[in-house]
Amino acid sequence: MSSDATGIHKLEDVVDLGKFLQARRARVNPDEVGLPADSRRRVPGLRREELALLAGVSVDYYTRLEQGRAKRPSDQVLDAVARALRLDETTRAHLHLLAGNTRRSPVQERTGVRPSLQTMLAAIDNFPALIMNHRQDVLASNRLARLLYGGFGWDLESGPNFVRLLFDEDSREFFPDWGAMCSHETVAQLRKMSALFPEDAEMTALIGELSVAHRDFAEMWARAEVKDCNIGWVRFDHPMVGLLQLYKDQFRVADGSGQMLVTLTAAPGTDGYEKLALLGAGA
């Protein structure tokens, strides 16, 4: 794997505080924080000295923070930096996690799905549902989920990685909102999970692989967006039923495994509900 192409070649790069700060600093426009525009700027975003001024810390200290030479910065300093970077609550918490100032909840990946979850999944028969792990590998799915994604040629029973599938070239045809869904949801959630599972070599390999293979992924990852669970409307352009709009919910399994139940629903009487019924009946 080429580190020149991605900047990702070992575990530390995925959860590196300095790289995260640099990426977020590049996203802050000077005029957003009341600084004058300067046509001589050679890089996007704020300069280090500007960020330090806004955060109320010395330029030397902030430089050491980005270079990984400032050990265990205080909560007060991190909160000040977060405010200067205009981070939301989820991203601020991610910053504290990267700095080692937040105690990580015990996490341990499970290789399989608990029988009780399998039973619940099998009992859901009127809307698609699936179980994924923190890397977004599909661990289990119900009949309607397999029918829904099977229309795109995706075999959920083979345990594919959902992020890999989304960045396949053909996926753009299946999701009218592909760009927003990948950038602001899928990649942002993957970044959050990478900090919760910092020793996961498979996660690091996945991020590196996608960064090399897909320029879109590399650019989205470089934005350093962080998001918790992805909920909201998802639109599909399905070959069997046409445009289909479903509401996605994610339910985190409370056992530290990183697994989550994902459901795609539509209210009775809606177009989405009728099309799901049609999809199920046509199998």
Rank of each mutant, 00 (worst) to 15 (best):
Phe251Tyr: 09
Ser194Pro: 06
Trp233Phe: 04
Trp233Arg: 13
Ala281His: 07
Pro36Ser: 06
Asp4Gln: 13
Pro115Ser: 11
Cys182Glu: 04
Glu12Ala: 15
Asp200Trp: 05
Ser257Gln: 07
Gly280Cys: 09
Met132Phe: 02
Val33Asn: 06
Ala123Asp: 12
His96Gly: 06
Ala267Tyr: 01
Asn126Ser: 14
Asn142His: 09
Val262Ala: 13
Ala82Gln: 01
His184Trp: 04
Asp249Thr: 15
Asp177Met: 03
Asn161Thr: 03
Glu66Arg: 09
Met240Gln: 11
Leu139Tyr: 03
Asp13Glu: 07
Ile124Asn: 05
Glu209Leu: 08
Pro44Gly: 12
Ala267Ile: 01
Ser171Asp: 06
His96Tyr: 03
Phe174Arg: 14
Arg172Asp: 05
Ala26Lys: 07
Phe251Asn: 09
His238Asp: 06
Leu206Arg: 02
Gly258Asp: 04
Glu169Asn: 09
Gly18Ile: 06
Lys275Pro: 08
Arg223Pro: 00
Leu278Trp: 01
Leu144Glu: 05
Gln189Arg: 13
Ala129Phe: 02
Gly179Arg: 14
Leu210Cys: 07
Thr186Phe: 11
Leu206Ile: 00
Asn230Met: 12
Ala195Met: 08
Ser194Asp: 05
Leu51Asn: 06
Glu225Met: 14
Glu219Phe: 02
Arg64Glu: 05
Asp79Ser: 13
Asp75Phe: 04
Phe162Arg: 04
Leu17Glu: 00
Gly159Trp: 08
Glu274Met: 10
Leu190Phe: 05
Val212Asn: 01
Asn133Cys: 11
Asp249Gly: 02
Glu209Lys: 10
Arg146Phe: 04
Phe167Gly: 01
Met240Ser: 10
Leu276Tyr: 01
Asp228Pro: 02
Phe236Met: 03
Ala281Arg: 12
Met193Phe: 11
Tyr149Glu: 04
Leu117Ala: 05
Met260Ser: 14
Asp200Phe: 07
Pro128Thr: 08
Leu148Cys: 10
Ile124Gln: 13
Ala5Arg: 09
Gly258Ala: 10
Pro44Leu: 14
Phe197Cys: 06
Leu147Trp: 03
Ala218His: 11
Pro44Arg: 12
Ala180Asp: 12
Ala80Val: 08
Gly159Phe: 09
Ala213Pro: 01
Ala140Ile: 10
Gly151Phe: 03
Leu53His: 13
Asn142Leu: 12
Tyr149Arg: 01
His214Tyr: 10
His134Trp: 02
Trp154Gly: 00
Arg172Gln: 14
Leu276Ile: 14
Ala129Met: 07
Arg164Leu: 08
Arg27Trp: 00
Ala23Arg: 13
Ser2Arg: 10
Ala80Thr: 03
Thr270Asp: 08
Pro268Tyr: 03
Asp200His: 05
His96Glu: 04
Gly272Asp: 10
Arg72Ser: 14
Pro128Met: 09
Arg64His: 09
Thr270Gly: 09
Phe251Ile: 15
Met203Cys: 12
Trp233Asp: 08
Leu244Ala: 06
Val15Ala: 10
Arg103Asn: 07
